[in-house]
């Protein structure tokens, strides 16, 4: 039996740093490995559709004819299963807390046509990094890729007719 058993803890809390953040003035740094939105490295994607078939919620759509890969962020539950099935390992998660969005939009990625495998190997030998956007443009021009690739080389994932959307999930 006793009284005021929580006293020391409560008193101690008076002199400690607060446990909460003053959101939105302070925000938390997302830890490495946090689940976040699915990003497709469009330069490696071969539009095979494995991710679309694997996705539990049907969030991904792959259009081979139109050369687009799209994801509905409102259906994606960030389970990461698509990442594990992708044969080219081009999907990844961007550690990131979702901001609020104003509209429901489907994120569409235009996938450029890829040079023939032999050519791609030669590019790799030259040390062209798929992620380095500046080098990529030059490589694309060298490899004689179609204009779509050059257009997409800024790394922008075009968002339907509405253009880029920073607030997308």
């Amino acid at each position: 039996m006793g009284f005021f058993k929580l006293g020391s803890m409560t008193m101690g809390s008076l002199f400690k740093e607060p446990s909460t953040l003053r959101y939105p003035f302070e925000t938390k740094e997302p830890p490495a490995g946090l689940k976040g939105r699915i990003v497709n490295d469009k330069d490696s994607c071969i539009l095979c559709g494995a991710c679309m078939r694997a996705c539990t919620t049907g969030a991904i759509a792959v259009d081979r004819k139109g050369r687009t890969w799209s994801i509905n962020p409102y259906r994606c539950v960030q389970c990461g299963y698509c990442i594990t099935v992708c044969p080219k390992k081009c999907l990844s998660m961007n550690p990131h807390y979702s901001e609020a969005a104003r509209e429901k939009k489907i994120r569409i990625v235009n996938v450029p046509e890829h040079p023939k495998p032999a050519r791609a190997k030669a590019d790799a030998a030259k040390g062209v990094d798929a992620g380095a956007k500046a080098g990529e443009e030059a490589a694309a021009a060298k490899a004689g890729q179609k204009a779509t690739a050059v257009k997409d080389a800024e790394g922008a994932e075009t968002n339907g007719a509405a253009g880029k959307d920073a607030a997308e999930n």
């Binding site: 409560t10 490995g33 960030q78 998660m93």
Partner: peptide, 29 residues
Amino acid sequence: ESLFMHAWRLREKILDVFERTTGGRVIFS
């Protein structure tokens, strides 16, 4: 109420460990 707050404050530490090790706080996949 203060006991409730302290219990949940402590629980938050565990959720942070989950977040760092699995990538999720409640649903881990």
